Simulated scan of single mutants.
Amino acid sequence: MKFWQALTWIEPEQLLEAAKFAEEVGFEGVFLGDHGVYPQQVTARYPYSTDGLPPMAPEDPYPDCWVTLGALSAATSTLKFSVSVYVLPLRNVFEVARATGSLDLFSDGRFLFGVGAGWMEDEFDIYGVPFRQRGKRMDEMITILRKLWQGGWVEHQGEYYDFPALQVSPAPGRQVPVLVGGGNKAALRRAARNDGWLGAGSAPEEVPAVLQEIAQYRAEYQRQDQPFETIVGLTTPPDVDTFKRLEAAGMTAGVSYPFKFALGARSSLDEKKRLMEQFAESIIRHCR
């Protein structure tokens, strides 16, 4: 089993060194979080907590994903990168195509595009994007991105996007893996149509049933023979036996908690390094 380190909400000045150390001790990859803006008044209910309250705060840092991942790719050589998750339907599809394609090129194919439909309706209102259309809009955006990543002239006529032949260059010339976050049926089906699933945080006993559901959808879409990643954060403390059991059930990667959860809102770089080293010693080296 592989393991990813969550760098969500980390102090920006520590990002580069934390990523380099994650690579050094054996993590497969690192991921960031994403929000475009954080409204002062949030009325939307967070879907992944029992009380509906989100784990993030307005002051938690969300540096631009593409600037940050570009910097991390230049500072490392084997580490992979993702976002868990990028709120795709908020954004302009052409700008996303250029940013993701450039990142994939400069990182030598180490980028996995983690996307989600988003939960914060207040954010969609600020962007002027219809919240109720976000799922269908995202599906069409993924279709367009896959065309643009291939390079050459691309045209598209769809429900939300209609444009004549155009090019976004340079293009990676490959299909960047698209991993989908979310726990509802629509999100799991969307993941099955693409290249992987990003779990937002599940109890270990819940994971096998979700993986089985996704496997059924993949068979329905005749994608069961395609590569597929399942990067799942667990709500319980890391445990070797649990990870091995879930690997047998089809989970391909586990997650080391965001430092905010493990060490508090703010911590030193040395504290973070010690935590990653402990995770590597107690978990990663026993699950290879």
Rank of each mutant, 00 (worst) to 15 (best):
K2F: 07
F3A: 12
W4A: 09
W4K: 06
Q5K: 15
T8R: 04
P12I: 09
Q14F: 05
V37G: 01
V42S: 05
S49N: 08
G52N: 11
L53V: 15
C65M: 03
L69R: 10
A75I: 06
T76S: 12
T78E: 14
L79Q: 10
S82P: 05
V85S: 02
L90K: 02
N92F: 01
E95V: 09
A97E: 07
A97M: 10
D104G: 03
S107L: 07
G114V: 06
G116H: 02
W119K: 13
Y127T: 02
R137T: 08
E140G: 12
R146H: 14
F163H: 07
L166H: 05
Q167V: 14
R174W: 05
R174H: 14
P177K: 01
V180T: 03
G181Y: 01
G183N: 13
K185V: 15
A187E: 09
A191S: 12
A192D: 12
D195L: 03
G196F: 03
G196H: 04
L198W: 06
A203L: 15
A209Q: 15
Q212T: 13
E213C: 04
R218G: 13
E220T: 14
E229C: 00
T230N: 11
I231L: 15
G233P: 00
L234E: 06
P237G: 03
P238F: 12
T242Q: 06
E247G: 13
A249Q: 15
M251F: 08
T252E: 01
T252H: 03
T252W: 04
G254K: 12
Y257L: 13
P258K: 04
P258N: 03
K260F: 11
F261E: 08
L263H: 08
G264N: 10
L275K: 13
H286S: 12
C287M: 07
